Simulated assay, not measured.
Amino acid sequence: MSKTQTLQNFLDGATVDAEVFALRPDYRALLIAVDGIEAGESDAASEALLAAAETSARTALQEQPVEDIAHVAAWREAYRAFGSKPQRTRNSLEALLRRAESGLPRVNRLTDIYNGISVLHQVPLGGENLQRYIGSPRLIRATGSEEFDTTAGGQDSVDTPDVGEVVWGDEQGVTCRRWNWRQGKRTQLTDSTTSAFFILDALEPLDDAALTAAAVDLVSHLKQLGPDVVVAQRLISAS
């Protein structure tokens, strides 16, 4: 089996629970799996992308407060729908836009790329180490018993989501809490990650054309991370 087919099989096994679509029928998840990455620390290319993202964010925030940006506002409403307070637990897009004014973090090439694309296209975007997944990804409303490995006070710890919280996970546990708020430690990207999984989260008014444009930009940058990079994609929606 080719690497591309292996990646596609992983994505084909991904699911979004009907209860999530009942909460937000307009939700779409564009999933991207990548292999053959030459891992590394932040470099000149990722620095240029982050600098462009910071400029884009500052321009957007001169026109309106971050909470009034259309896609940020949509995600705030989605958080309220499952009982989360968006002013306390911000969706990943809002969190990055707020940081962009003073400077986005420089982490590693992969993380820098997806953070930059997230800000430039104003779409929540998560990146995970595909090799640490147990089974395919799933988006559910939590029972409250699922395990989420994280860090608290500088120490490794295990947390559990709230009942009804929207979470991404796999067969072992939660990989990201509150839809796109905080990723777990087990599947986080590192300087040595060579196989990755990305989730682009969309709600109206972000349309499919804008979502696709963000994915195309992401893939374009990922393909620059080595001559053997292979990519698979899948869009999941209520329809």
Rank of each mutant, 00 (worst) to 15 (best):
A202P: 09
D17H: 05
T193K: 05
I32K: 01
R76S: 06
T160M: 11
E41W: 11
L189N: 12
I134T: 11
F198E: 09
F197G: 09
I199S: 03
L110P: 12
S102R: 09
G83S: 08
K223P: 04
A196G: 14
V119A: 10
A81H: 00
D162S: 08
L189A: 11
R109Y: 08
A196R: 13
V219Q: 06
D208V: 15
W181S: 03
V216G: 01
P161N: 04
T15R: 09
G173D: 04
L218E: 08
D17G: 02
S239D: 15
T15L: 00
A95L: 00
T212D: 07
A215H: 04
E147R: 15
Q64M: 09
L218S: 14
D207K: 06
A44H: 11
L97C: 05
S145W: 06
E63I: 13
N108D: 15
T150M: 02
T6F: 05
I134V: 13
K85D: 15
A100Q: 13
D68T: 09
Q122W: 00
E204L: 11
Y114F: 15
E94G: 00
E147C: 04
R24G: 01
A51H: 11
V174T: 09
G103C: 04
P25K: 14
V20T: 08
D12E: 13
A142G: 10
C176W: 03
R24P: 03
A238H: 14
N129V: 12
L206W: 11
V163F: 09
S136T: 07
L23K: 09
A39Q: 12
R24N: 07
L7Q: 08
A44F: 03
G169R: 01
A215D: 14
R98E: 10
L104S: 04
A210Q: 15
T4C: 04
K185S: 04
W179Q: 02
D43W: 05
I32Q: 02
F10K: 07
